[in-house]
């Protein structure tokens, strides 16, 4: 991933976990094995530094959001710490997703503009509609069973006319509405904000759990943390 110091907060998380009790790099990384020995993960250890990369991780991979990372065991301020810097293409894509949906909204507006009928076409359509409306009959009564059960009768021609008048005013905006695209742009903006807070919090929690639990974590046959085991 690119090194862009002012904006890399979008897809990067940095932090540290205090190693309590202090551990050697080898012992620390051994404890992280359950997070890293999963399908599609490559990692290498160089002294006190571990670098990993996940290629298309499984949905339940505990580090699925952060597919690249560097972990370093350091001594700082009298503490033994695991410092990490993790990057997430998923966070970047979700950050960009609102732009895509805004582009869809703009496309919708442009298409609607291109297809906007001319005055002559509008008049012709209105005349046809009025002609069709003359042929309209009052809706037939509800089936006797529905009448007995008390279902509301279908709308009369007058009610239909009024509703269509109201809807017609709303439809004036164009053939397609950009509303859905705007809503999804908003949803993805909210998802980014939520994910940017949630995912770093979860990853820190997982590191702490893996590193500072008193008992050695048990490896399952799928190479996952016990909490990620398959059971119903």
């Amino acid at each position: 991933m690119l090194k862009l110091p002012f904006i890399d907060w979008i897809w990067t998380t940095r932090g540290y976990v205090v190693l309590d009790p202090p551990r050697s790099p080898a012992s620390t990384f051994a404890r992280l094995d359950p997070l890293l020995k999963t399908s599609g993960t490559e990692y290498e250890v160089d002294g006190n530094t571990l670098t990993y990369r996940k290629e298309n991780p499984a949905a339940q991979d505990r580090l699925a959001t952060f597919t690249k990372g560097t972990l370093k065991v350091v001594e700082e301020k009298g503490q033994s710490r695991l410092r990490y810097r993790l990057t997430s293409p998923a966070l970047l894509l979700v950050f960009l997703a609102p732009l895509l949906f805004l582009a869809f909204a703009q496309a919708t507006i442009v298409i609607s503009e291109l297809e906007r009928p001319t005055e002559a076409e509008k008049a012709a359509a209105k005349a046809k509609k009025e002609k069709d409306a003359e042929k309209d009959k009052e809706p037939q009564q509800l089936n006797v069973i529905d009448q007995m059960l008390g279902a509301p009768a279908p709308e009369t021609l007058e009610e239909k006319k009024q509703r269509e008048k109201q809807e017609g005013e709303e439809e004036e905006e164009g053939t397609h509405s950009p509303k859905a695209a705007y809503v999804f742009a908003g949803i993805f903006a909210a998802l980014f904000c939520f994910g940017r807070w949630l995912e770093p919090w979860l990853v820190r929690k997982r590191f702490r759990k893996a590193l500072n639990q008193s008992a050695e974590p048990e490896l399952t046959d799928r190479g996952q943390e016990p909490e990620a085991q398959f059971h119903s």
Binding site: A64, T65, A90, A97, A180, A181, I187, F188, L191, G195
Partner: peptide
């Protein structure tokens, strides 16, 4: 998961737009 939710909603969004 958050990532699965985002992925799913992307497809839902495509459907609505």
């Amino acid at each position: 998961t958050w990532k699965e939710l985002c992925t799913d909603l992307f497809y839902v969004g495509l459907g609505y737009t």
